[in-house]
Design a protein around this nucleic acid. Sequence first.
DNA 1: CAAAGGTATGAACATATGTTCATGTAAAAA
DNA 2: TTTTTACATGAACATATGTTCATACCTTTG
Lengths: 100, 100
Amino acid sequence: MEEQLDNERVEKIAFVLKTIAHPMRVGIIDLLSRNEKMSVNDITAYLGLEQSLTSHHLANLKMKGVLGSKRDGKNIFYFLKMKEAPEIIKILEDVKVNVF
Amino acid sequence: MEEQLDNERVEKIAFVLKTIAHPMRVGIIDLLSRNEKMSVNDITAYLGLEQSLTSHHLANLKMKGVLGSKRDGKNIFYFLKMKEAPEIIKILEDVKVNVF
DNA sequence: CAAAGGTATGAACATATGTTCATGTAAAAA
DNA sequence: TTTTTACATGAACATATGTTCATACCTTTG
């Protein structure tokens, strides 16, 4: 049997999960798992959100190491950096949820 | 290429992630992935928490379908119900996190 | 049936998180 | 060099979440 997770591990795991745990951010990660990179405009359009809100979420995901970004002319392209992120979403693709 | 996740899927995925995304709850799930079932007392002791707080978190995890419970005498035993939960934690076991 | 052990629950509070709005900034185009 | 396009940022606010505390509930034991 494997060892039990120590406190620091548990904290880090929860931290990453908290970072991803939002519909908008799950959507962004899903999008970026199908497209190598996307501009803020594209992401905003695909998800049908407001520019500012998208930016906030992207900044959040980047700050915490889930995404990276690179400017190209006027555009800034975001891309996946944490490979685990889409794997987690994949696992939950068919999950059943308790409605209440 | 697989289809993009629809809104409902994304919402459900985020919902489950939000449910798990807390150090205490990650700890509980980890514990229950190594032990078929555990009483509230045992969980409380292992994690070194307060009884009431443990109860709140357990109730939360149960309500949302992650755990189940069964009374046996004075004790109430909790067990894993959502198989995806420990899988997610497993994926993140060695994840690197941005400190800031 | 009273006491004790094991757990749940609700209210109150503190804190964290998400959203909007107004505005700022960098690069390209006119 | 002004305007426009693309994006970032900060403040203010609203809402959600986590924790504590007091107390209630159910089961077994004496």
